[in-house]
Design a protein around this nucleic acid. Structure first.
Lengths: 121, 121
DNA sequence: ATGGAAATGATAATCATTTCCATTTGTGAT
DNA sequence: ATCACAAATGGAAATGATTATCATTTCCAT
């Protein structure tokens, strides 16, 4: 955990939702920090390794990052404005576990996102 | 649906699992087909639009394709060997619909994948 | 102060995917 | 069969994210 890692955590805390490495780099630059893109990638990688941030993928495959919350949860993402709401898994947790066992899978993890248009859009 | 689309479907049928655009292109080339990479991408795109193949992402973000079964379904993917099983959504369908309504979202779609190690790995 | 390890960042390399554009192929009307 | 035109094709270049290189700088413990 070094200085750059902390900077990235700070930005992720302030932005809240998901952001790509390139976006995070731009934000830091805009704030006057001369941090290099390479360092941003390195810091994110190490934070992912330490399970401090989650990595998922946009539709186009670009990697996006967010701080891990305490609990496990999923997202409701607006296709219009990008607003995201964290929601509890509930039924899906059991579904994933049940299905995995049914086919003899171990060490399972799952992803689930819901996309739609929010009430404003 | 043109000649190239059919070629791609044929390869996907024979290979069974998931394959990336680059891999599919190499396979066709190896078989003596002079098809261009551009055409492979175009054909895959149109097959995805027509919901004939599924598109998902490897860990590194590379797009991988697979023939769709008939209905809406999800995947159980082995992290070890890449084997995939199509599974019915069941509970998750209702979960997605309920949660979306709860927050006033419209035109919702969802994604859900389960990852784990299959019994062989 | 100093030596070495870790961190940094500019630049170049890599790799999947898209865009461009000229050429070829298929098709329908005559 | 032939002509005209749209659709399909494929090679090359462009794009954009991510990674590798490597020289330089920062940190620390001595």
């Amino acid at each position: 955990m070094n200085k750059s890692d902390l900077k990235l955590i700070s930005v992720l805390e302030r932005t809240g939702g998901f952001a790509s490495a390139q976006e995070l780099h731009q934000i830091l630059r805009r704030e006057g920090d001369g941090i290099g893109l390479t360092t941003v990638y390195r810091a994110l990688q190490s934070l992912v390794d330490d399970k401090i941030v989650d990595l998922l993928r946009r539709d186009d495959g670009e990697a996006i990052y967010r701080l891990c919350g305490d609990g496990h949860h999923h997202h409701l993402v607006c296709k219009g404005c990008g607003q995201t709401v964290e929601i509890e898994g509930g039924a899906i947790e059991n579904w994933a576990k049940t299905k995995a066992e049914e086919f003899g899978f171990r060490e399972v993890a799952h992803t689930a996102e819901i996309f739609g248009l929010c009430s404003k859009c």
